[in-house]
Design a protein around this nucleic acid. Structure first.
Lengths: 201, 201
DNA sequence: GACAATACGGAACGTGGTTCCGCTTCGCAA
DNA sequence: TTGCGAAGCGGAACCACGTTCCGTATTGTC
């Protein structure tokens, strides 16, 4: 999130009409319900229907579809950030902390079926992509840096790259029993953890 | 492409009308051109326009959009299969062979901007997904098995899982200079290569 | 109670994949 | 060569989406 972007303070401000505030909450709840049932790709119209409002109302509160997704999952992303900071404070191995943190992130993505694909969609630009990465990358960066300082990794992978990689691994892993995003993220982290002779890049 | 080339005996069969065969080739060429310029997400209508035919004609030859994509890239997939077999025949380290093969696959995906996303799209089922994986997974399986027998990997990752993982890593890496799918695939393979104490899964 | 400002609903628009069907072209056979 | 059925063609039409627009309804204030 760019500087100066005030969080939800504005959104919840009491300078707004009561019906507007009520509808926003209704929408958030409805969206959470629909996303849980049918994945984050559910049509906007359906969320509007579930909330008992018109689509116009949805777009009044959330100018783009992705803003709604962000709003629904914002607190989970924040929780992830908090977890990262707690893990950093903990004395144990930075690499173990990174691994635990990534596990939590992967769980989050996998649990909400299809959430990751919102990141992956080519025509995203801004919206979700920005929010998720802007918040998570700095935490990841610090975890990675700590691991580097502790000599537990020698990889030159950046935090942004790692986050995107993890996110991509979580794509489309939902109902396919042959594909386990968690397992693959572990393999990727194993590659991050101990890199022997670097291959010619 | 002269007769007796490779696969689609039926498609190229001479029981079909000449205009039909001509149009199929025209379409394939047009699609290749459009895909190269604007990525594999280019609208069907545009491919039809580029070929100078109606959309109906596109769908006559390729019942689904993804069939067209498959047809355009089929020979590259086949080349990848061939490479895998050549590498298997070669005497050197199976793991090195696997790495070289994956590099070639990643190059293929990254070069055609957005190709990988066709795999990733949730509502795919069948089509491209099936063709790519059905052909590539067996080769990957043999490379992986060879590496396992040579004691160069102890991972329990399956070939399908690995292919999907690699494919996912190649998503949306096109114009983002901060994200290098090749580098991430190397990290993933590093994790495959030497796995120390397995983490609790 | 009246009047802005604010918010709402849902029809309408643009864009995408896909289908349908009347018309054209081809290939064979008389 | 011509006739005719089958194969193929074009593109309008359909459906599903995200998003925009605007006439109407609601709210808060004086």
């Amino acid at each position: 999130m760019p500087a100066g972007d005030t969080p939800s303070r504005d959104t919840q401000s009491r300078t707004r009409r009561v019906d507007a505030r009520r509808n926003e909450k209704t929408l958030l709840d409805a969206a959470a319900r629909v996303f849980a049932n049918q994945g984050v790709d559910a049509p906007v119209r359906q969320i509007a229907a579930e909330a008992g409002v018109g689509v116009g109302t949805v777009y009044r509160h959330f100018p783009q579809r992705s803003d709604l997704v962000i709003a629904v999952y914002r607190h989970q992303v924040d929780a992830c950030v908090d977890l990262g900071e707690r893990l950093l404070g903990r004395g144990s191995s930075p690499l173990a902390a990174l691994e635990e943190w990534v596990d939590a992130f992967v769980d989050f993505l996998v649990t909400k079926h299809g959430l990751a694909s919102v990141n992956g969609g080519q025509a995203d630009e801004g919206g979700l992509h920005a929010y998720f990465l802007d918040h998570l990358v700095p935490v990841c960066e610090r975890l990675l840096e700590a691991a580097r300082e502790a000599g537990e990794t020698s990889t030159d992978i950046g935090a942004y790259e790692l986050m995107r990689g993890i996110g991509n691994l979580c794509l489309f892993g939902g109902d396919d029993t042959r594909y386990d995003a968690r397992k693959l993220s572990h393999v990727l982290l194993a590659g991050v953890a101990l890199r022997r002779e670097p291959r010619a890049d």
